[in-house]
């Protein structure tokens, strides 16, 4: 099929498939009403070095009793991850195959869930951890009691299978084979694990040329993003460097990274992973968004991946933390 026909079919699909979506005639009015609710700018106060040191010390001390500078939501997730490792032997990498969420209404009671809304999820089940006032109350799995012996032919896939999935995807970056297995297709789950994944020479060269071409325009857009966050940056009580330090410590605390893993953890501020300020929900307080990447030189290892962090730029708490192992390709 040629591209013209392809384009015509896909355009028609969009026009038909989304034909019932209509805009809001009062959108501009709503937006202006929201804009007028935003908090007025305050002068940025730079904390003196001694106070920063005391703040970090407080964070270390507080971490000793389990809270650190992690918000209650993020800390609930940390406790939940720990509880799942203790009860079921699930590492952070294994949990990376699930969608994770912490739900709580009052800041004290949290419901941390791990699930996967597809056919693979039917094999993996879902995990639930309840946390109250910083204590884990309950840890459960929807497939409790199912037989997990027998490798990938088992009735349910638990830690054993998840551990193998980590190894296989670290080597192959291919999740499709697990779906094929579930569907009963003939598939070699461990196939291709020794093969190198290097692009062809001409592809490499072309990729380098096009990367260079797009860089200038992407830089301009990133500049726009940074400009948009200026108002929030002006309200921040911390400098960027201080916020990066707080974010990094949050990642280390939340995931218990060892010395080697900490050494691989690199702060990113690029066109692909920009660091920037914005106004957070629900009150417009300034938030600093940042990304850390970790990748061992000889291939993926535990702790590697992309950590996305959001830090409250008024009080330094880590409000959001997400760990993407990069092993699971589906968005």
């Amino acid at each position: 099929m040629n591209e013209r026909k392809e384009r015509a079919l896909i355009c028609r699909a969009f026009d038909v498939g989304l034909s019932g979506l209509k805009g809001d005639p009062f959108l501009a009015r709503r937006v202006l009403a929201e804009a007028e609710k935003a908090a007025p700018a305050r002068r940025k106060k730079r904390l003196p070095a001694m106070l920063i040191a005391a703040l970090v010390l407080t964070a270390v001390t507080a971490y000793a009793v389990g809270r650190g500078l992690l918000s209650p939501r993020v800390d609930a997730k940390r406790l939940a991850n720990q509880a799942l490792e203790e009860k079921y032997g699930l590492t952070a990498a294994m949990l990376g195959f699930f969608s994770q969420d912490s739900q709580g209404n009052d800041g004290r009671h949290w419901r941390v869930t791990y699930d996967r809304g597809d056919e693979l999820g039917e094999k993996l089940g879902s995990y639930l951890v309840r946390v109250t006032d910083g204590q884990v109350e309950n840890v459960s799995w929807t497939l409790e009691g199912k037989d997990t012996t027998g490798g990938f032919d088992a009735e349910a896939w638990g830690a054993e299978q998840l551990g193998e999935m980590v190894k296989i995807t670290a080597a192959t970056h291919d999740m499709n084979r697990f779906y094929q297995k579930i569907r009963g297709e003939n598939v070699d789950l461990y196939g291709g694990m020794d093969e190198a994944d290097a692009p062809a020479a001409e592809t490499e060269e072309w990729m380098q040329e096009t990367d260079a071409e797009i860089q200038a325009q992407a830089d301009q857009l990133m500049k726009g993003l940074q400009e948009a966050g200026k108002a929030s940056e002006e309200r921040s009580a911390f400098t960027r460097e201080e916020l990066v330090g707080l974010g990094r410590q949050g990642v280390i605390d939340a995931y218990g990274l060892n010395g080697e893993q900490q050494a691989r953890l690199q702060f990113e501020d690029t066109v692909f992973f920009p660091a920037y300020f914005s106004a957070g929900h629900p009150d417009g307080h300034p938030v600093f968004h940042m990304t850390f990447q970790s990748l061992a030189e000889d291939g993926w290892q535990e702790g590697d991946g992309i950590y996305t962090v959001e830090v409250n730029a008024l009080d330094g708490t880590v409000e959001y933390l997400d760990y993407d192992t990069t092993l699971d390709g589906n968005g």
């Binding site: 096009t210 990367d211 071409e213 797009i214 325009q217 692909f272």
Partner: peptide, 10 residues
């Protein structure tokens, strides 16, 4: 698209 998504053209 690369500019809008902040990724490489390739």
């Amino acid at each position: 698209i690369a500019a809008a998504l902040g990724v490489a053209q390739s």
